[in-house]
């Protein structure tokens, strides 16, 4: 297996627990212990009440395709072999949106409003990246 050349997550800025959970194939989010708000992206304080007390909680990992785009040109050489590939904006059932890829489909099979669920790709021995696939009807 050739070396993984794509950008890997960095675990600075308090994101290590999130990526550790991905490694266990669990999708998590920070939940405020004062007001209960779940924030995304990862941040040091609650985006509602600025409390710094939080816990990592598991989320369902389901949502819908809010929008998606198809790269016909590689802006980064590590992605050259993947062209054409999609990048999607997923609206999670918890209300926030995430950027990811939809796997197991060709670009013309993707629809806005399509139900999707998370899966994890173990891209290196240390890192797993959350991606999405259509939910089987």
């Amino acid at each position: 297996m050739s070396a993984y050349e794509k950008l890997l997550p960095d675990t600075l800025d308090g994101s290590k627990p999130f990526w550790d959970a991905c490694r266990r194939h669990e999708l998590t989010i920070q939940e405020c212990l004062e007001c209960g708000h779940r924030r995304w992206p990862i941040g040091p304080a609650c985006t509602h009440c600025l409390s710094t007390d939080f816990s990592w909680v598991g989320v369902a990992g389901t949502g819908e395709v809010w929008s998606w785009i198809t790269y016909h040109q590689a802006f980064n050489s590590a992605w050259a072999a993947d062209v054409p590939y999609n990048v999607a904006l997923i609206r999670m059932d918890e209300g926030h949106t995430m950027i990811s890829n939809i796997v197991g489909v060709t670009p013309d099979e993707i629809r806005i409003g399509q139900r999707v669920e998370v899966l994890f790709e173990d891209v290196t021995d240390e890192a797993s990246v959350p991606k999405f696939r259509p939910v089987k009807p």
Binding site: D10, G43, S67, I99
Partner: peptide, 22 residues
Amino acid sequence: GLSWGIWGMFGPQANSAMGARR
């Protein structure tokens, strides 16, 4: 802190193209 390049999202076209599609 959370680069979308992890999922291959590079260049300024991406954000606007996402809006255009929707």
